[in-house]
Design a protein around this nucleic acid. Structure first.
Length: 470
RNA sequence: GGCCAGGUGGCAGAGUGGUUAUGCGACGGCCUGCAAAGCCGUUCUACGUCGGUUCGAUUCCGGCCCUGGCCUCCA
């Protein structure tokens, strides 16, 4: 497989070659579980899910780790604000995270380590860093000494002097250098804490990822992914910790970062408040619609989120599903699905999902046109296989059309009865009655389609219903 | 101030040194009792701006303008 990936570390596209072809490793930064994730948080999950699927096509074993951060000051604050225990809060939002992601048809990672299960490893790594002169204890804290490391700042492309010049935060007096970051900090009795050689305390943010990657994937991992906003300081600091703790061994060979979701051109972020939670979006749209919306643009480009973005994704999916619905004459077993070369090649080219979708559209068009049974079978198998690599078209066709839109419309039983009545009316050539039934259903959000195999129906998209009423 | 992305047709969004992206939308036709879906065709002379290189640039180089981001928690 000729996979090319853009590596943030070198700022170039590179041919991907796993360190060990028998065991490809990928680590993606997961959520801090203190609230519901928003669509911006979902983007990397979906993007790297596609990469995971692609890698699994080419290599026998891919180990994908995605962490859960369940110790963090934001968690402490949220628990206190809710009057809820920290354990209950993190359990609740971990569960919510899993539920929301399942709706997006993402594969579970092979390992989902939790920070609180790795405290021992963190303490061990801190000790190694202190012993090797890369960390120091000061005022109850343990800090990483950025000046002890050659090449600090390489990933984010910045010099220590620049960091100082731009520092907007008051520098703690105990830091030797303003850029030094916390590995361990003291906890009060009320806060979560663990005993350590430096007293009862809790880990700094960046440390957990270094330790969990080491524990589950080894000292050197192939791919490390996350959103662009993690490049600095999070990933920069992970590199510092891991590289120094492993005596210079390379931490991650390919660094991948997805672009932001924006709203009206501005970055979506929790602190700005301009975000949509995935939970809310799932109330309005099928998970596949949201998934496709995320894949409509290249992963490294910003993606502006608006109702139009999602409606467009829905239209595209309707088209794909319609194509499948028009091809019920040929059955494709799961084992018969095949990935078209052009779709695979588009994804191998730094995950060019828009180009892959273009090929999928061409496949759908060809399927709509094809008359030869063998060709129809092949095209349907390719449409399903190609879409499957993107994690799409996973919903049974009838469920797609009948379950879409508002759920408070007429029931399937009522619709079927009306269709039967209408068929009878059409048989009598009583078109006035037949059309009345169809118009009545249309007004209630149901579209009828008379095909060679009889009449099928679909729930109209919400926007269409609104549009007709307006 | 330092650093980094990006500016493509009505919208979304790939890509390429010379030949159709694609989807959505709009318009016309075929099909249909009429529709819907599908198919065919058309539409918008698309590539921020000014120079340069070139036989030829949206595509390479440089200046400029604009937008967004990072330098602080953030996917």
């Amino acid at each position: 497989m000729a996979l090319t990936l853009y590596n943030t570390l070198t700022r170039t596209r590179e041919a991907f070659e796993p360190r060990d072809p028998e065991r490809v490793t990928m680590y993606v930064c997961g959520p801090t579980v203190y609230n519901l994730i928003h669509i911006g948080n979902a983007r990397p999950i979906v993007v790297f899910d596609v990469l995971y699927r692609l890698l699994r096509e080419a290599w026998p074993q891919v180990v994908y780790a995605r962490n859960i951060t369940d110790v963090d000051d934001k968690i402490n604050a949220a628990a206190q604000a809710n009057g809820e225990s920290i354990g209950a809060l993190t359990a609740r939002f971990t569960e919510a995270f899993h539920t929301d992601l399942a709706a997006l048809n993402t594969l579970p990672p092979d390992v989902e380590p939790r920070a609180t299960d790795h405290i021992e490893g963190m303490i061990r790594m801190i000790r190694t860093l202190i012993d090797s002169g890369h960390a120091y204890e000061a005022d109850g804290h343990v800090l990483f000494d950025v000046n002890s490391m050659e090449g600090y700042g390489r990933l984010s492309g910045r010099q220590l002097e620049d960091l100082l010049a731009g520092a907007r935060v008051e520098v703690e007096a105990y830091k030797k250098d303003a850029a030094d970051f916390v590995l361990w900090k003291p906890s009060t009795d009320e806060l979560p804490g663990w005993d350590s050689p430096w007293g009862r305390g809790r880990p700094g943010w960046h440390l957990e990822c270094s330790v969990m990657a080491e524990t589950h994937l080894g000292e050197t991992i192939d791919i490390h992914g996350g959103g662009q906003d993690l490049i600095f300081p999070h990933h920069e600091n992970e590199i510092a910790q891991s590289t120094c703790a492993h005596h210079g061994a390379e931490f991650a060979r390919y660094w991948l970062h997805n672009g932001y979701i924006t709203v009206d051109g501005e970055k979506m972020s929790k602190s700005e408040g301009n975000f949509f939670t995935l939970r809310d979006l799932l109330q309005q749209y099928h998970g596949e619609v949201i998934r496709l919306a995320l894949l409509c643009g290249h992963y490294r480009q910003p993606l502006d989120w608006s109702p139009a973005t999602v409606e467009q994704a829905r239209s595209a999916l309707d088209r794909f599903y319609q194509s499948l619905r028009n091809a019920t004459d040929t059955r494709v077993a799961d084992s018969e699905q095949s990935i078209p070369d052009d779709v695979r090649e588009a994804l191998e080219d730094d995950l060019n999902t828009p180009l892959a979708l273009r090929h999928l559209h061409a496949t759908a068009t060809a399927l709509n046109k094809a008359t030869d049974p063998a060709e129809r079978h092949r095209l349907k198998a390719e449409l399903l296989g190609g879409a499957g690599l993107l994690g799409l078209l996973a919903t049974p066709v009838e469920e797609w059309f009948r379950g879409a839109g508002d759920s408070d419309g007429p029931s399937a039983e009522e619709i079927d009865a009306l269709i039967a009545e209408r068929r009878e009316a059409r048989g009598r050539r009583d078109f006035a009655r037949a059309d009345a039934i169809r118009d009545d259903l249309a007004a209630r959000g149901i579209t009828l389609e008379d095909g060679p195999g009889g009449t099928t129906w679909r729930r109209s998209a919400r926007a269409e219903v609104t549009g007709q009423q307006a």
